[in-house]
């Protein structure tokens, strides 16, 4: 059973803002969806990677990369050739 406080907790984990009005609706939908997901609890066997998937290694050699201006061109906030982000501490 997913409660409204579970929804608020998951939203914090995922860094997803949700409005107060959305919380009860999400809780109702999530309970229905999880009930549906639960049908797979009876599946037997171990999980495995997607068909044909395998690790692919290559030598750690430098390759050409995009110029600095191209990398910064889409950033919302830059300063002296750096990208600005919110304070971590």
């Amino acid at each position: 059973m997913i409660t409204e406080s579970d929804i608020e907790h998951i939203a914090e984990l995922a860094d997803i803002g949700i409005s107060k009005d959305e919380v009860p609706e999400f809780a109702r939908q999530f309970n229905a969806i999880l009930e549906y997901f639960s049908t797979i609890e009876s599946v037997e066997g171990e999980g495995a990677p997607a068909a044909g998937a395998a690790n692919a290694f290559r030598e750690d050699e430098p390759r050409p990369c995009l110029p600095q201006e191209a990398v910064l061109a889409n950033a919302g906030s830059t300063e002296n050739g750096y990208i600005k982000a919110p304070r971590v501490m």
Binding site: A11, E12, A75, G76, S77, I83, K84, P86, R87, V88
Partner: peptide
């Protein structure tokens, strides 16, 4: 941060992203 609408760098990390 790298693309999309600019995040508000004055807010705290989690608050800004949320």
């Amino acid at each position: 941060v790298r693309y999309g609408p600019a995040v508000d760098t004055k807010k705290s990390w989690h608050e800004a992203y949320q």
